[in-house]
Design a protein around this nucleic acid. Structure first.
Lengths: 192, 192
DNA sequence: TAAAATACGGAACACGTGTCCCGCTTGTCC
DNA sequence: GGACAAGCGGGACACGTGTTCCGTATTTTA
């Protein structure tokens, strides 16, 4: 009830360019992070600056379009995990998933960190949604005694940010495994 | 063999201004992070832009002066801990110290993260020194079996960055304690 | 196919920031 | 105390980046 109820449909070339801009923006932000310039996006899309600006009058709106879509995928994945696995496994699998995604996409890592993009402000839903899903999975894992009860979702998010910081320069799957193992162990409830 | 062997000693007002600039820079970078502007530093010091630029021709040199000094303190503290406590305690105390410092000084947190300052490049000694001390303390704690043997200093540094990310918006001593507890537990060797 | 509406490209502008420069001031030395 | 060197302030410049604007090109519609 939004994209189809517009007063006037976009011209075909405008539709095509909009898609191109979105694809280019996704690629550029994934590679360079959210501080990449709008010029880079326009060049990658093969369009002029004005075209980008018309579809997304402000860089923040362009970031919203990209980041919100990606975050929605994360939220969906988190909910799917919650439905499929028992709480503890769902939670820790989601952690691993977040780390993988953040390492593969610098823009997402930036969004999680809050670098160059105030997630809580304009695109408020974005970060909060990740936090909310994280909280939901965390609640489940804490209820079953799989995770120590004192930590909250913001703690977990920060730990994920730490994992992303590890591979910022040189990707290293072994390090990723180690970091996640430390998190797993650190978050587990103290044994008897 | 450096500050006193200059061809000509600085004029007294130049010496005074140099100190003022350094103090202002330390304060501004601590508050705003390393991306704070040189103009802010000059204004805080009560001097003109030219004065800052003469003493530190480039922002990078100014950052070096501030960051290297602060990092040196951290290194010294780490070495003192190594001398005073047994390895495990020295290591975990140093972690706590790094987190406290990073939370109290946004510039140091930026330096640790590598935000707005390529520590490994010009001021190479800076970050590497923290890494080295961390590695030294870590080696000791691993030798005594206090810390799991697979992690390296870069892993630990990244985890500290994660702790700093937690309090970036709103300082929260309770969260800090929790995060450090998670780290402690996560880094401990697996029990029998 | 011709007229009107719509979109395009990229130059121009605004703004923040690091760096450079020069006329004036202040400290130093005889 | 006067001459000269050294330092000072802050305006000017260079540069990157987000945003705006308008003459031209393309699509839509009658």
């Amino acid at each position: 009830m939004e994209g189809s109820a517009r007063p006037k449909p976009l011209r075909v070339d405008a539709q095509r360019n909009r898609v191109r801009v979105l694809e280019a923006a996704a690629a550029v932000f994934a590679e360079q992070g959210l501080s990449a310039s709008v010029r880079d996006v326009a060049a990658r899309a093969g369009v002029g600056l004005g075209t980008v600006a018309r579809h997304f009058p402000t860089k923040e709106l362009l970031l919203d379009a990209i980041v919100l879509r990606a975050v929605q995928e994360e939220v969906d994945h988190g909910n799917a995990l919650a439905a499929e696995y028992e709480p503890g496994r769902a939670f820790f699998t989601f952690l691993s998933y977040l780390v993988d995604r953040g390492n593969a996409n610098r823009g997402l890592a930036d969004a999680l960190t809050g670098a160059g993009f105030d997630v809580e402000k304009a695109a408020s839903r974005a970060d909060l949604d990740v936090i909310q899903v994280l909280q939901r999975l965390l609640d489940g894992a804490q209820a079953t005694g799989d995770v120590r009860p004192d930590v909250d979702a913001a703690d977990v998010k920060a730990l994920v940010v730490g994992c992303l910081a590890r591979e910022r320069r040189a990707p290293d799957p072994a390090a990723r495994t180690r970091m996640l193992a430390v998190l797993r162990r650190g978050l587990h409830v103290a044994g008897p």
